[in-house]
Nucleic acid binder design. Structure first.
Lengths: 194, 194, 194, 194
DNA sequence: GATGAATGAGCGTTCATTCAT
DNA sequence: CATGAATGAACGCTCATTCAT
């Protein structure tokens, strides 16, 4: 039980931080407020995270580790390119809609100086979370199924709309349903396919 | 002359704020630093703008007012839907690439709590800067040229990729040229057209 | 008058810092307390001093600049070695006794990591405030009036007792008067002379 | 065995505290760090010492209790005053040089608000560790061998230089050897003798 | 009107001390 | 008895805002 409690505390902090950062952004989520929402002393956070930056970075990694399995569930590299793209796109969009806090946090993260650094890592091939997408695109180009764009632009054509649509849904500007989700991802496909 | 000077100061402040916010984000741009860069006393800013939030909001409106004429230059409501879309999309993308500070500021703005508020105004029909796009999309749907999506999703399918591509270009992850710009916008069109 | 006020503020801060550090040591003198004692806002200190370390360093330099003229008043390089030593020693001791806050601050300073650094500068010949003493000692050795010790030891034999005596006086363990001051310095002389 | 262990823990704490305070000063030696270096839980320290101040005070007393026997080894009240002074002075100086951590701790201690309190106890006759010195000085004065100074000043003339010289040696500004040690103490004698 | 010195609430972080296990 | 996770007051410092000049 003591181990369980310990985990509880850390998870409470993570949860509180995610919520507050998602709601108010990095600068609207002071450590004291995170502590309060987590029902924890201000100093306690520092037992688990060296400082605020580290807390945020770990939050991000937590999130990635949580997202990928969900998105890749049922994914098979053997299916046709289009079907795989639709799978990934709809899974991502569904995840965002079902986990709006996660989505908002990711948005905040990618807009921080810290996010830019991470993005650079990705572009240099360091991160491998996106490998599924990369492989999919590279294969699609090789087979002349996809337009011959730089990978970065294919990413933008695919994820740009999904992020925008997810944000609008979360802010209440559209109400997505399963049909709209699929149609939207299919529209993305139309954008990148030859 | 005093009126002219006053305008000069106001514009210096706006310019300085835009630069600093674009470069370092909202929280890396203290009022004192803005004042210094604008060659103005710290208190002077408050003669022109009630507080920092108001300054930022006006900055945003300035920017919109500056962008639309540029984007709409040469735009004709008489041309075919596709051609009009390509005109608007490429003009927007070109504007972002040629005015990276403006783009960075807009990104920062849209990610602030303030940005969400503004977006809500738009959806309620308060803002009319996007009317050209709205008309284009509504007409396209009516003529069965575009997919029958909620307007909001058409917006996302169009601007989501453009913003993402512009960011990648500005961060140096792709180098866009005129051809890639057109191709990218054409890909967006493929996404929204029937 | 505005210039005078400005100086007043800075001097209030310096005075308050000196008092509090002398009374309670560096760590017993938080910036907030210094500000309060100086009748100044907490942030005001940072208009005049970049941070606490700089404040302390400037305090020290202020003090040196204030002390040397007082100690050297009436000092003449032409007088006999002994007389010059007595002059310097008694002047120093008198200064300490008449300015107990200055003395206590210097003690705190020399015991800080910062003080050690400064001491190292001195030993390497960077600081020239002590040149009078150095010259006196070097000349005394050359003329075979003083014992042939490393300079550093001559310093210790001279200032060690003076500092200790001054501390005891300030703490109330002895009550020095003019006669005792002179006798004490003469005893120091007996220690270093051949 | 339990009693032995308990003693072990206490001594480990004392040793760790001495090291860290000597190395980094009082404020560079947090309780948690002391506990870690002592291989002891943070809370354990509080079983042996009521709080940090008490720990430090006991550390000081430990040190005195450890020093006096060493310094008094071979000391005989029957020998001539001068010889006894030289014995005590050189023994003290040697002790400082051979136990730099002890010396540094003592310096830190004497400069804390706590140190002053202790000193006051001494002057009121509470402490009796210095009795040897007191007796030596009183006897020397009575026999007209020493200058007729208040005891406190004789102390200062004797220990002031020794402490200063020890500090310089430990900081590397001089390198003392047996000869210099003796000469230095003899110089102190010259200072206090008639 | 313009200034910039002054303010103080609020930030991220540390650390002496406590107490449930 | 020993532990070390938890605490929260206190620290040094920043910066949006005010106001006397």
């Amino acid at each position: 039980m003591s181990k369980h409690d310990k985990h509880d505390k850390r998870e409470e902090i993570v949860r509180a931080a995610l919520e507050l950062i998602a709601e108010h952004g990095f600068h609207g989520a002071p450590m004291a407020m995170i502590a309060e929402r987590a029902n924890v002393g201000a100093g306690t956070i520092y037992r688990y995270f060296e400082n605020k930056d580290v807390l945020i970075a770990e939050l991000y990694q937590n999130l990635e580790a949580k997202m990928y399995p969900v998105i890749l569930e049922g994914y098979s590299a053997d299916k046709p390119t289009r079907e795989r793209f639709i799978h990934l796109g709809t899974a991502l969009l569904r995840y965002f809609i079902e986990n709006p806090l996660d989505f908002r946090f990711l948005e905040q993260f990618h807009n921080s100086p810290f996010g830019a650094e991470h993005r650079r890592d990705k572009i240099l091939g360091v991160k491998d979370g996106c490998d599924v997408f990369r492989e999919l695109f590279e294969e699609g180009i090789a087979r002349q199924i996809l337009k011959e764009f730089p990978l970065s632009i294919l990413f933008s054509l695919s994820f740009g709309p999904l992020a925008a649509v997810a944000r609008d849904h979360i802010l209440g500007f559209v109400v997505l349903n399963e049909v709209l989700i699929v149609w939207t991802v299919e529209a993305c496909w139309d954008g990148i396919k030859r």
